[in-house]
Simulated assay, not measured.
Amino acid sequence: MSNKIRILLVEDNIDLAENISIFMQTCLHEIDHVSSALQAIDLIKTFRYDVLLLDVMLPGMDGFTLARTLRNKFNCSSPILFLTARDSMSDKVEGYSSGADDYLVKPFDLQELELKINAIVNRANGVLNEHLILEKLHLQPQSRRAFFDTQELTLTQMGFCILHTLVLAHPKIVSRAELEETIWQGNPPESDSIRSHIYILRQALKTVHNDSIIETIHGLGFRLNANNIS
């Protein structure tokens, strides 16, 4: 049986929200439901949730903007899972860039949703507490902060998880399968989300170093470029 998880669902489709709420309650989770971003912000300022389920097409403020607002203005660290019919690569890149941990395309199976919720909550709770220092890279896993030399990096939670994995493995190559196992704990999404996350992470790293810090070793996986972190 899964541990009880406190969920906030932000969804303006009342029928879908009711189905999700009933199913999560049968899984012994606690779930609050609101239908707008402003209602969500009011709750998040008062309560801490283990995971946020956000629709993208919300009245007023959309889900992408809500995620950015929660991450940047309210310093909300709760994992975010987007529930949306928008499934293009550009939508997914925007979703992950706004601070999402995962992305589930409608329509979806409620059991799959619960599996994803468990995976991202377990991942968020499993981050080690020690500081990691590798040349100019300095990671603080408990607060999910990362620095290159003295400059702080702006990373998504998924980007931090990937960088953390690469730092721990350095100088070894980390395969795509190993990344997927670390990030999704054996339940990766059907789409090639790793590509999106690596792209966003590389864009963030380019703000502190002109050359690529992450190398793609074709047919094998990824590793940190030792020359560019020293």
Rank of each mutant, 00 (worst) to 15 (best):
S90E: 00
S36R: 14
V93N: 00
P107D: 03
M24T: 12
F64R: 15
V51P: 01
K106E: 00
P79C: 14
L83P: 06
S35I: 05
Q111A: 14
S36Q: 10
L38Y: 13
F23C: 04
M61A: 05
L115N: 15
M57N: 11
Y103M: 07
D62G: 04
Q25K: 14
D42P: 05
F108S: 12
M61N: 07
D101M: 12
D50M: 08
P79E: 04
D91L: 04
D32L: 14
L38R: 09
L54D: 04
M61K: 12
R86G: 00
I31D: 03
L43F: 08
C76I: 09
F64L: 15
A85N: 09
M57Y: 00
A100N: 09
S78E: 01
L52H: 09
D109G: 11
D50R: 03
S90R: 06
V34I: 14
E30V: 13
V34C: 13
P79K: 04
F108H: 08
K45S: 13
Y96P: 04
Y103A: 05
A85D: 05
L81P: 02
R86D: 00
A40H: 07
C27H: 15
E30W: 08
G99P: 05
H33E: 10
T65G: 06
Y96I: 08
M61H: 03
I22V: 11
F47K: 10
K73W: 08
F108D: 06
L113C: 09
Q39E: 13
D50T: 11
L58W: 00
S36V: 01
G63L: 05
F47M: 10
L115F: 12
L115A: 14
L83C: 08
L113I: 11
D50G: 07
E30L: 15
S97D: 00
V105R: 04
D87Y: 08
K92S: 01
S77W: 08
H33W: 09
L115G: 13
Y49V: 04
L54N: 03
L113F: 07
L83N: 10
F23T: 03
T46S: 11
N72C: 10
L113R: 02
T46W: 03
F74Y: 06
V93C: 00
R48C: 03
Q39W: 00
D42N: 11
L66S: 02
L115E: 13
E114I: 12
L58N: 05
L104N: 01
K92L: 08
C27M: 15
H33Y: 12
S77H: 08
F108K: 10
D42G: 11
V105I: 07
C27A: 14
Q25R: 15
H29C: 15
Q39C: 07
L113H: 02
G63Y: 09
R48K: 14
K73E: 11
P107F: 02
R86S: 05
L58R: 10
G60A: 11
L115S: 14
L43P: 07
K106A: 03
G99T: 03
D109M: 06
R86E: 04
S98V: 02
I41G: 01
G95C: 04
D42H: 10
L110E: 08
S35P: 01
G95N: 05
L115H: 10
D102M: 02
I22N: 08
S77M: 13
R86P: 00
I41D: 01
S21K: 14
L28Y: 13
L83K: 04
T84F: 06
N72G: 02
R48S: 12
